[in-house]
Design a protein around this nucleic acid. Sequence first.
DNA 1: TTGTAGGCGTTATCAG
DNA 2: CTGATAACGCCTACAA
Lengths: 339, 339
Amino acid sequence: MKKNPKLDEVASLAGVSTMTVSRVVNNSGTVSEKTKQKVLSAIKELNYQPNVIARSLAKRKTNILGLVVYKEKGVHPEFHNEIINGVQAGASELGYDLLVFAHNEEESYSSRIIQSSLVDGVVFMGISPNNADLLAVHNSQFPYIYIGKREVEGVEPFFLSPDYIAGTEKATDYLISQGHTRIGFIGQSRKIEPDRDKLHGYQKALFKHHVVYNPNLVFEESQSQLDGYKAMMELLQHKPSAVVMNNTYTTLGAITAIKEAGLKIPEDISVIGFDDNQELNQQFNDFIGLELTALQIPKLELGKQAAKLAVSIITGEEVPKENYMDLVFLQKNSCLGLK
Amino acid sequence: MKKNPKLDEVASLAGVSTMTVSRVVNNSGTVSEKTKQKVLSAIKELNYQPNVIARSLAKRKTNILGLVVYKEKGVHPEFHNEIINGVQAGASELGYDLLVFAHNEEESYSSRIIQSSLVDGVVFMGISPNNADLLAVHNSQFPYIYIGKREVEGVEPFFLSPDYIAGTEKATDYLISQGHTRIGFIGQSRKIEPDRDKLHGYQKALFKHHVVYNPNLVFEESQSQLDGYKAMMELLQHKPSAVVMNNTYTTLGAITAIKEAGLKIPEDISVIGFDDNQELNQQFNDFIGLELTALQIPKLELGKQAAKLAVSIITGEEVPKENYMDLVFLQKNSCLGLK
DNA sequence: TTGTAGGCGTTATCAG
DNA sequence: CTGATAACGCCTACAA
């Protein structure tokens, strides 16, 4: 492994000082065009690349963004991973590298994150972050953003969350505008904030349009394909004309139930899916030969936006504490207006 | 954001030199128990954490492992991500942090990886890595390992690959030992090495047991759920008594076809799945009320092992260039012996 | 066992 | 526009 050329070697080859080379490399300060060219060719000749560690030490800034992911059961890994890709992409666009911290529940990262000077800021994600970590980072004024919505006692954390309420409201509005009133809702779990929000959005839309809320049409604890199947089987007893789903797996199960009941989508029942898992959703759409109208979390964008917010905070810009991102409402062909 | 305490502040509080503190922090050299205690309490009092950047510069070693993921269509993102988790876990166990590089096809990382001194070594993964990168890193003697199997002209890269041949051979052996001879094979794509290897393993087992290879039973271009469905529909014309699948989606489709044909698993046909995607597989097993016998890639272990190999190379240990990891053969209840 | 001097590779600062 | 000098915070090497 050959030793990398250093700044002073470039400098002596170009016949200038290290500072001049540094200026050229960083495009900072003022360098005459002529010396700049000399330096550039020396850089090229030696194939010089700056040592980012030395640079980081001198600048006291690493241009590395940390990411702490708290994993949990009940959340599809694919979900997280898409967002991570987004964070990475966003960071990259802004000239930051991404360092992923282990997601060990036991461990606390706060002091390492804050004090090691390894990262300039951090993105937290996952439903159940270590509150102590979040609090410590928040209190130390270290730049951070949390992906999701979070209430921590005593503090108002910086967060970025998909706007589940508005999204579900919009989807439900859409069905109502098509004449539906017997609209089923198959939710995931009332224990999880995003899911409470979805139900909330559904209710808001009903209320707004003076449609009576019918508890028989609402199922709240469907996580899996099997749950979705069962919920739909039961829901069908109550003759809904439409249904709003809340995750990909339950959608899979529910649609199987609809098919088994001999009903057709969208002729007999309109379906709005929830596209948690893009790949699976696509596979499934292909398989059933139907493009589902669905709500989708723009995961990549969400991650990018989180990275951007983190960097904004790092660079000292004014950033609101609460940030929301709209869900995407994909209008495909699994819904039909009621005559 | 309060300034972090430095080595010399700890030193003066403890009444010793910075070197003594450094020795205590790194557990290196020799320090008397008494001064050690003094130093430790000073560290505690000031809540000292070493600045890893300064340390990295001084040691010319960052304890950061790089990861470059080349994404591509046709590979389930979940697949990659599980491995990434493994790499992260493995690195973490060995005291390394993980830096994830963007997976931009256009970009070349080699010079940045090699020369920036940001990472001590790198793990590459993905079917279609940038050959130039791999080559450059290889030639520069920079520590790296590639996850997957790879032939690059002129070089023998360090790699770690699941042993697809042995795995599929074992699964096929198992079916043959149960009396099956009309064994179907639904593969993914002959363009992809892992998939060629799977077919190879299947053929090896047949050959070994003098079972005649029947091309009618072999389907090679099934990627999706729909493909799997179609392939199985056709395969059923040829009355197989068993079938070996090669990814989760095709398995989904194939089993739907089996059900629609009115056949029962395992009574009418034995099925060996391929558990690409653990979560989906689990969902599906729950849904059909059957635990599939399946081949599984130990993704987490694969990632961990890759990290370990990379670190071994970094620390100068002797590491073989070719490394294989066995697939896991999960014997559940979707296979039955033939009378 | 402990301390001193110097350097890791870069950039900030200030002078020229 | 350019250069000298002193950090950045820690560790290696050697000396005491």
